[in-house]
Design a protein around this nucleic acid. Sequence first.
DNA 1: ACAGTAGATGTAATCGATTACAAGAATTCG
DNA 2: CGAATTCTTGTAATCGATTACATCTACTGT
Lengths: 348, 348
Amino acid sequence: MSDDEIASIARTVTIQDVARLAGVSTATVSRALALPDRVAEATREAVFSAIRETGYTPNAAARSLRAKATRMVLVLLPGLGNSFFTPVLDALEEVFSSKGYGVLVGYARQSRSRETHYARLIRGGQVDGVLVITGNVPRDEEFVAIPESVPISLMFSDIPGTDQFSVFDVDNRLASATLVRHLIAEGHSRIAHIVGPEGSLESHERLAGFRDAHAGAGLALDESLVWRGAGNFDFVSGDRAVSDYLAAGARPTAVFAAADEIALGFMRGLKNHGVSVPGDVSVAGFDDTEYAEHYDPALTTMRQPRTELGRLAAHDLLRRMMAKGETLPRTHLRLPCELIIRESVRRL
Amino acid sequence: MSDDEIASIARTVTIQDVARLAGVSTATVSRALALPDRVAEATREAVFSAIRETGYTPNAAARSLRAKATRMVLVLLPGLGNSFFTPVLDALEEVFSSKGYGVLVGYARQSRSRETHYARLIRGGQVDGVLVITGNVPRDEEFVAIPESVPISLMFSDIPGTDQFSVFDVDNRLASATLVRHLIAEGHSRIAHIVGPEGSLESHERLAGFRDAHAGAGLALDESLVWRGAGNFDFVSGDRAVSDYLAAGARPTAVFAAADEIALGFMRGLKNHGVSVPGDVSVAGFDDTEYAEHYDPALTTMRQPRTELGRLAAHDLLRRMMAKGETLPRTHLRLPCELIIRESVRRL
DNA sequence: ACAGTAGATGTAATCGATTACAAGAATTCG
DNA sequence: CGAATTCTTGTAATCGATTACATCTACTGT
């Protein structure tokens, strides 16, 4: 006990202190830690005992400086507001921390200074790798390019026109079409779509899939049933779409929202106007977030394999970070989505 | 453009490169950056121009080594499964990143190796401060004490018997009693409580508040209406409590769940058995997470000021980290909760 | 018994930025 | 005009760990 107490009060313990106590050089201490079988049994024990006695922990900054690696990855999210991201972050933390990497989170909300902050982090060598989730790669005020030595991967959204980054996503267009085809198969022919936020590639792709399904079924698409104006993948945007529904001349029998949160907000708003789901109108979402299953009514949706994609992206990034020097060819992994049928869609 | 390209391809730029290009010493470059008015106008411009040309960004590890500070804070959460934490993390990231600090997230799920990992991070000087949200301070395999030089604050849950850390929380007992008093005021006298996970201080306090309210109102408490067995603050635990409800001899007219997620899971489970809320039974939660408002029926609950508590805790930690050397007296901040009345509780 | 080899350990350079100290240049003032 | 003061800049030590290289010891085989 007194040992521990001393250790916690004394000035930070360095490798010098350990070396002195063990009666060896700092090189030997370092080796005992990094390559235990390259030091003699007795020495090793002396070193470990000294380490225990002093409570020594190597200084990360010194190690990083020498090794040119920080064992940190930066995960950039658009914010945590949407529960879509939580299992992703969960999976990432799981994999990275199990390999001894720290996970730095950054929210890439629309803020210039914040973007600069994160660009600096990357260019300052503070992180060994970056995962950009549904967003853009940060640039600093001088728009200086990110060094290629730091591997960057994108998740859930590609950046068109670049071949520079690895991508882990799903085929939003195909998944969207599959879902809408299901609605059609259930007997719906007047289907509306609450489009996701403008400027988002996923929104665009899902809308394309919505059109594909109509075309594939030889169904005419009423353009007045394409409801734009969602500011985000959130409740509020869904709630706002209620007015589109109420204003529609001939009301749709089914509504496909570009995301679960939008669908939930929409259904809640509908309820306030006495419209029942799926009695009066069927509703489907996209993502299969945790709340989709537990909402009342439980939501029919497309499941994105978020946890799996997170794990795979993490392992891929790990591989790249290890491959010091050579740059591996970019990975583009697309995992299939799965149609989850629940209560919010009724057969006509 | 060619400049940027060269900068991104060349080996990492150091202060030496900038000094050489600007025709000054590294000391001058460093000063131009840190104390601009201590270098001559002309020199400063030469330095900045060289920095721009090379795309130089100071190496964080080198700076940390010298400065003995990393400008990183560690935020330990029990996991992100519960949406309770997202606004907290949001607020923390907001404050810290605006002050140039990076936020490292760690999930303190029950895992020995993970705990060791984070304890090492702290002891290795990799972070300047720590925020432990609803959990314990990590210890490594040797249980060596955390150095006192790293400020640590706790959020939402105190660790009884310690005076070592600052705490930012609410009076769970009082808030719980207030909520239950509201139920009583609405005419309920048979009230059940779905107790939170065992071993959690908040669970314990909320149960105490539940009892206080009964005692205060001179109401006898039927111990068979204290439902334990929740594994966590989650849907599943709420769903599990449905069997307690169904098995109850004389059914309660209101149920107070120790957390919103539990309440939501409980209501969803009830629905599957044809029990309606608030028609057949009233339900109240605790926390006021985002979904409480948007659920159907919208949930009556106690709001914890999560964002505000997050901001205040962040600023306090920032102050402590700046105060290099002296240790400031610990802060214990309690913010009041607010009763949010919605649809899930019916007047009897 | 001795050259050759393997094993263990120490010496010192190195990573990149910061900063105390020194020194030189420019300015002020009596 | 010379001394004192202020500005500006450079030199070199420093932060703590890693590692190439050198050195020394202890075996091995003939």
